[in-house]
């Protein structure tokens, strides 16, 4: 028996919206500790990793670990039927479920929707992601980072991110010219302006902006984002989801020939 009830169902809707351009189908692994999901884009350049802890759910029960293979497109269609204020419950009684039940309830419990989504059997392509002690960590406004990526992608499809003790520089070079945005440490009390740099070792890495722009669809999940980098490592972009868990994106760097 598996049942997970999320009080703020809108969080689940936002998560699916954030990843639907990146991955087509995912395995959600349910265990006693919560839900986890890891999937790569078709080019195996980017990876999304979701972890939702059981204690973040209103109700959570998972008698034995199960894997739920979902088509993101079909999941999106069902979630469109959930109101932003609804609770969302996932449920199945079977051990090897062929479908997953969804219940959407409004606040007054005066409207209850029930859907059943057919499950897919997907081979698990999971990668071993080592716990990395990143040498450069940037915490900043997710809206601000999203804006920087959007603005720079009009000049080039590739951005170089260079950190130093007191600032991070985003540089682009394209046919029309070049540009850079430098953001300094800023302990402002205004969320949108605050920038927190923890630079043990400076890094200079290059990434494809189109992936960063896809990651930034998660901006509605958290007002802050953290960029985690070490030389010769994929970038890890993390959106923490209050009291529930985190949505992480990994992106392999580009190397200049």
């Amino acid at each position: 028996m598996f049942e997970a009830k999320l009080q703020q169902g809108v969080i689940f809707k936002k998560i699916v919206d954030a990843i639907k351009d990146l991955v087509k189908s995912v395995n959600i692994d349910a265990s006693t500790s919560g839900l986890s999901m890891q999937a790569m884009d078709s080019a195996h350049v980017a990876l999304v990793s979701l972890k939702l802890n059981e204690n973040g759910f209103k109700d959570y029960r998972c008698d034995r670990p199960i894997t739920l293979g979902l088509s993101i497109e079909n999941l999106s269609k069902i979630l469109k039927c959930a109101g932003n204020d609804d609770t969302i419950t996932l449920q199945t009684d079977e051990e090897e479920p062929s479908s997953l039940k969804f219940f959407f309830e409004n606040q007054q419990a005066s409207k209850i929707s029930e859907f059943s989504l057919n499950l897919m059997s997907l081979d698990s392509e999971s990668l071993g992601i080592p716990d990395t002690d990143y040498s450069s960590v940037i915490q900043m406004s997710s809206a601000e980072f999203s804006r920087i990526c959007k603005e720079l992608s009009s000049i080039s499809e590739t951005v170089e991110i260079e950190t130093s003790k007191e600032s991070v520089k985003f540089s682009v070079q394209g046919d029309i010219g070049a540009g850079s945005i430098t953001v300094k440490n800023n302990q402002s009390d205004k969320d949108v302006d605050r920038v927190d740099l923890q630079i043990d070792q400076p890094v200079k890495l290059t990434f494809a902006l189109r992936y960063l722009n896809m990651f930034n669809k998660a901006v509605s999940l958290s007002s802050t984002v953290s960029l985690n980098m070490s030389e010769e490592n994929p970038l890890m972009v993390e959106y923490k989801i209050d009291d529930l868990g985190s949505l992480r994106f990994y992106l392999a760097p580009k190397i200049s020939d």
Binding site: A43, H44, S126, G128, E232, P234, Y250, A252, K254, S256
Partner: peptide, 14 residues
């Protein structure tokens, strides 16, 4: 021009 690396250059398949 820059070459895009793959995640399998960094993470091993489980």
């Amino acid at each position: 021009l820059a070459t895009q690396l793959l995640l399998s250059n960094f993470f091993n398949e489980m």
